[in-house]
Amino acid sequence: MPEDDFTLDRLIHEPGRLAILTVLTSVAEADFVFLQRTTGLTKGNLSSHLTKLEDAGLVEIEKRFVRKKPNTNVSLTKDGAERVARHWAQLERLRGLADPEGAR
């Protein structure tokens, strides 16, 4: 990443989508209810964000049945993992500029 590149990924930067992707970095996969509870997003918001992320190739969504009930399972793609890691690193660099003593 060039040192003067401060462009933030607009798709990822939206707080709801950033929260979803960050949760997914700490698990191998999670279902819709887990993401909803952990991020605090409403069902509608979460659905909308997941659709955008899937269309961009950042997450994989698998719909299945568990005990005869529909269950939506979500995992990060390799591209998604790289892009969210890059985004957080970018934010840390920006924070480091604001605090010359070093990011806390």
């Binding site: 996969e29 999670a30 209810v33 887990f34 509870r37 005990r67």
Partner: peptide, 15 residues
């Protein structure tokens, strides 16, 4: 297990 999975969701830990 069923209560927690239905109310708080399921996840699989990383390696």
């Amino acid at each position: 297990n069923r209560y927690y999975n239905e109310r708080y969701g399921r996840s699989r830990p990383t390696i």
